[in-house]
Simulated scan of single mutants.
Amino acid sequence: MSFASVILALVTLQRLGELVLARRNTERLLARGAIEVGARHYPLIVLVHAGWLTALWIWGRNQDVNLAALAALLLLQGLRQWILATLGPRWTTRIIVLPGTPLVGSGPYRHFPHPNYAVVAGEIALLPLALHLPVLALIFTVLNLAVLAIRIRAESRALSVADWPRVSTP
């Protein structure tokens, strides 16, 4: 098994684990009275991410690895963990709004409005670059940005419905 295949296997397992976590968090939030907003664009997100991983497996599994791009990708994983820890049970892959619950304004959300989207955008570009696939990096970066434009608009609308307080935790 090549080093590239090991990296792809780890990323694939990470994404599958995140889907399990997201589903569990979504179910718990919905049970508490949360609502999903902007669900119509969600299949596009799934399609872009599944296409990205599939393309990487097809064209990248036996590639040499650019260690500088891999190092940058690993740094993003630290930010991803910070995001997951900050949002805790509120982290999902969907837009789930729990009325009466303040917005999170701590952790990376204190510094960036959409840190998770920034991490994902970085990953979508960096992993293909780490596998010497710049065309895939460009194609999926553009596709991801298009889907994110839709998603961020939907999320901003959902979060601006009420004057949500921000909650900061140490």
Rank of each mutant, 00 (worst) to 15 (best):
M1V: 01
S2Y: 03
S2R: 01
F3I: 08
F3R: 02
I7N: 13
L8G: 02
A9V: 14
L10W: 09
L10M: 14
L10R: 14
L10F: 15
L13Y: 05
Q14Y: 11
G17R: 11
G17V: 14
L21V: 06
A22V: 06
E27F: 04
R28A: 11
R28E: 01
L29Y: 11
L29S: 12
L29C: 15
L30Y: 04
L30I: 08
A31F: 04
R32D: 03
R32Y: 05
G33Y: 03
A34T: 03
A34S: 09
I35A: 10
E36A: 07
V37Y: 12
G38D: 11
Y42D: 13
P43C: 08
L44G: 09
I45Y: 08
I45F: 03
I45R: 13
I45T: 05
A50P: 07
G51H: 02
G51L: 08
G51K: 02
L53K: 12
A55W: 14
A55C: 15
L56A: 03
L56H: 04
R61Y: 01
D64R: 13
V65Q: 11
N66Q: 12
L70H: 15
A72P: 12
L74Q: 14
L76I: 02
Q77K: 11
G78P: 08
G78D: 04
R80I: 09
Q81A: 12
I83P: 00
I83H: 00
L84M: 09
A85G: 11
L87E: 02
G88P: 05
P89E: 15
W91H: 15
W91Y: 04
T92L: 01
T92Y: 05
T93Y: 12
T93S: 06
I95T: 08
I95D: 06
G100P: 05
P102R: 13
G105F: 14
G105P: 01
P113Q: 07
P115Y: 00
N116D: 03
Y117N: 07
A118C: 07
A118N: 07
V119R: 00
V119P: 00
G122P: 02
I124C: 12
I124L: 13
A125E: 01
L127I: 06
L127P: 02
P128H: 01
P128F: 09
H132K: 02
H132L: 13
H132S: 13
H132E: 12
L133F: 06
L133C: 09
L133W: 06
P134I: 02
L136S: 08
L138I: 10
F140L: 07
F140Q: 05
F140M: 10
V142F: 10
L143Q: 00
L143G: 03
L143Y: 02
N144W: 06
A146L: 13
V147A: 09
R151A: 00
R151D: 09
R153K: 12
E155S: 02
A158K: 15
A158W: 08
A158R: 10
S160K: 15
A162T: 07
W164H: 15
T169F: 12
T169W: 14
